[in-house]
Simulated scan of single mutants.
Amino acid sequence: MVSTRLIEAPQERAFQAFANPDQLKHWWGPSGFVNTIEKFELYPGGEWRLIMHGPDGTDYHNENVFTEVTVPERVAFEHREPVHRFKMEMTFAPAGAHTQLTWRMVFESATEFARVKDFIIPANEQNFDRLAAHLAAL
């Protein structure tokens, strides 16, 4: 699955919104979610553990391992928990004064993707909306 958005911020600023956990916790996830970042080691083999607190009060524990980091252009990681596993590649491409942000998600199977796509597609768009609002507020 591929999601993309033109972000109204330069590449370095858009990348730092992800690379800095103090910023990331404010915009990661769909609308209404709040995050507790327990560990964030942005280098290949580094762990990223967070708890996404849903608007209904449900806590979603997430475990990820970074597989590639190229500052300020690309981050790849494996999402290992909780419910579904996937590989995620995020690219931050300069587009004039803006950044073309692209997320590529590869799920373990077509069946798994079919099971979650009705949630994931709008959730990614909400995530991009939250990032754009976060960057506009800085």
Rank of each mutant, 00 (worst) to 15 (best):
M105H: 10
E89S: 12
E73Y: 14
P94K: 09
F66Q: 00
L6S: 00
I37T: 01
E89P: 04
H53Y: 00
N64H: 05
T111F: 04
I7K: 15
F77Q: 07
E81Q: 14
E41Q: 05
P21Q: 05
H79I: 03
T111K: 06
E12F: 14
A19Y: 10
I120R: 12
T91M: 15
Q126S: 08
F128P: 13
D56M: 08
A14D: 00
L138H: 12
G29P: 04
S31P: 09
V75S: 06
G45M: 03
T111Q: 03
V75C: 07
E89C: 14
P10Q: 12
I121H: 15
W103Y: 11
H61S: 11
Q100E: 04
M90W: 15
N62L: 10
L42E: 15
T58M: 12
E112Q: 08
E41R: 00
A136E: 07
E125N: 06
Q126N: 04
F66A: 00
P82D: 09
V71L: 01
F77E: 00
T67S: 11
N64R: 10
E38A: 02
E108G: 13
V2Q: 13
V34T: 07
P55Y: 01
V34C: 03
E8Q: 15
Q23D: 04
A110Y: 07
P122F: 06
E8A: 11
R80G: 07
E68T: 06
Q100A: 02
E38Y: 05
R104F: 01
H98G: 00
E68M: 11
R13G: 01
K117S: 10
V116C: 05
L131D: 07
I121T: 15
G29C: 09
G54R: 10
L42M: 13
P30A: 11
G29W: 13
V2C: 06
Q100T: 04
F119K: 04
N20S: 11
M90F: 14
N62C: 11
G57W: 02
I37M: 01
N20I: 14
R74G: 15
H134C: 01
E41N: 02
R85W: 14
P21F: 07
R85S: 09
R5S: 13
T102E: 02
P21D: 07
I120H: 11
R80I: 00
W28L: 08
A114L: 02
W27E: 13
E47N: 14
L101A: 03
A110K: 05
Y43C: 12
A14H: 03
F40L: 01
R49T: 13
L138K: 14
T36E: 04
S31Y: 14
A76F: 03
G45A: 03
T58S: 14
R74E: 14
R104I: 02
A136T: 13
T58I: 14
R13V: 12
G57C: 02
N62V: 14
N20G: 06
G32V: 10
T4W: 07
A132R: 00
P122C: 02
F128G: 10
N35K: 05
F40S: 05
Q23Y: 15
T70N: 06
L101T: 03
T4N: 04
D59A: 09
R130Q: 02
P122A: 04
P94M: 11
P82Y: 05
N35F: 03
A17D: 00
L42A: 14
A132N: 11
P55T: 03
S109R: 09
T91K: 08
F15N: 06
E81C: 10
E38G: 09
A97D: 02
W103P: 01
R85N: 10
P94T: 11
N20M: 09
E73V: 08
